[in-house]
Design a protein around this nucleic acid. Structure first.
Length: 271
DNA sequence: CACGGATCCTGATGGC
DNA sequence: TGCCATCAGGATCCGT
């Protein structure tokens, strides 16, 4: 479900409210992708200092250690002072002095992992190979182009891999490539500096805009305050197979790359 | 090492 | 209506 915009919107929807809260109880449901990595009871008494984000991970910084939270495909967080009883898909819950943080994740591809520090081997394993943050100043068009030149797979798949630039998932990869006028199937190394720079700008623009719009709610996303996103309403290609391109009126096409759907306009994205 | 594919899991949807 | 196949916002792991 969540790509960078949804994760960031989720973060912003509860970071200030949970900051300073002390953990009163921890409840676990079915296993998630990885084990918690500590005894749940050991979290009790610790304080949530801040909530940050790295790629699609949320980092719940405690006074001692960090909880890494990943929403996988179907995860979402809720933070509220009053929540209904936990359901079958609620697999992690922190009761704090400021409210309850609950992870609902039907498919359980998500994860909550404790690490004593971001320097640990575990943190390195999960975060160490992540690419640059696309909305930071460190995301540089020339460096991006240099990296792309090393890859011969399709540009769409390079974006999804997340080891050059993080946070671009299946929706925003299609959207950014449309905005940049680039065919998703072109080999990454065949992009000129000018076109790589265009894609660099498009990624930043699409992700920023999606954050402004509260993310994309395709079916079940909502932020930790329960609010839906609206970016899906202005998607140019994602989920629009057979519909008219909003720019040139050609019919939007769908193909599969690495078992994921890719949407593009055959006229606006010629190569 | 770069790449393609299988894989984890549940729910929604569409065809017959 | 039921049954089965397919697909879904992610990312790791394994074999070649």
């Amino acid at each position: 479900m969540p790509e960078l915009p949804e994760v960031e919107v989720t973060r912003m929807s509860f970071a200030d409210r949970i900051a300073g809260a002390s953990i009163l109880a921890v409840r676990m449901g079915k296993p998630l992708r990885w084990p918690l990595g500590c005894d749940a009871a050991d979290l009790v008494g610790r304080t949530v200092k801040a909530v940050r984000r790295r790629g699609k991970y949320l980092l719940l910084e405690l006074d001692q250690g960090v909880l890494l939270i990943h929403l996988g495909m179907s995860g979402r967080l809720v933070f509220a002072t009053n929540l209904p009883a936990a359901g079958v898909h609620d697999h992690f819950e922190l009761s704090t002095s400021r409210g309850v943080l609950r992870l609902r994740d039907p498919r359980r591809f998500g994860a909550v992992v404790f690490t004593p520090s971001l320097d640990s081997a575990l943190a390195a394993k999960l975060l160490g190979r992540l690419g640059v943050e696309p909305l930071s100043a460190a995301f540089d068009a020339r460096a991006f182009h240099q990296q792309l030149k090393k890859r011969q797979v399709a540009i769409k798949q390079v974006l999804l891999a997340g080891d050059i630039v993080v946070g671009v998932g299946n929706i925003y990869a299609s959207e950014a490539l449309f905005m940049a006028g680039i065919r998703p199937t072109i080999s990454a190394r065949r992009l000129s500096l000018a076109r790589a720079a265009r894609l660099h700008g498009a990624i930043r623009e699409v992700l920023s805009r999606a954050i402004e719009r509260g993310g994309s709610t395709l079916k079940d996303f909502s932020n930790a305050a329960g609010e839906d996103g609206h970016f899906q309403l202005e998607a140019m290609v994602y989920g629009r197979e057979g519909l008219e391109c909003r720019v040139c009126h050609a019919s939007i096409k769908c193909l599969r790359q690495g078992q994921r759907s890719t949407f593009f306009c055959p006229r606006c994205q010629k190569c």
